[in-house]
Amino acid sequence: MRPLTEDESKTLFTKLTNYIGKNLIHLIDRKDEPYCFRLHKDRVYYVSESSMRLGSSIARPNLVSLGTCFGKFSKSGKFKLHISSLDYIAQYAKYKVWIKPNGEMPFLYGNHVVKAHLGRITEDTPEHQGLVVFSMSDVPLGFGVTARSTVDTRKMDPTSIIVFHQADVGEYLRDEDTLF
């Protein structure tokens, strides 16, 4: 377990900024308790200071996980956001999309969101913008990246993809063994 280097922080922050924008400051500079990002076995954990101090006394091979896993660094140095970060991302998300009940299941099985399943979407969402996918009853289901801007979606046919799938809560079951 170690703090992130500057390059790693930069990669992580660019990824997070794509989803929550300037709200990232609220994650770093928290009012209630100091939180920090820690890297352990290529995974980035968002952990409170007290837990981090406790965890630092555990030997590296024995430490399985701590705090909230935000994602992992690939071998090539890219950062992949995991579904476990959804709690924080949904809380601060800048752009959101709500999908109809008949679209929930396909999305939770790892498919992209097609226009037919689109319930609502935040106004003026740009192209390739990270957003959080909600069910119509405001339950966060995962997150994705827009294929087109909101304005462009109007002219498209119902089967075309609106949101590219990035992560969904179904991964808790599907990737249980590799997720944390």
């Binding site: 377990m1 170690r2 703090p3 500057e6 922080s9 930069k10 922050f13 990232l24 400051i25 770093i28 500079d29 100091p34 939180y35 920090c36 990002f37 820690r38 200071e49 981090m52 101090r53 630092s56």
Partner: peptide, 16 residues
């Protein structure tokens, strides 16, 4: 790992 979190926070904010 054991340095004060405050430092880290400031560094992160500066980076942002």
């Amino acid at each position: 790992n054991e340095q004060p979190v405050e430092h880290e926070k400031n560094a992160s904010l500066a980076l942002l």
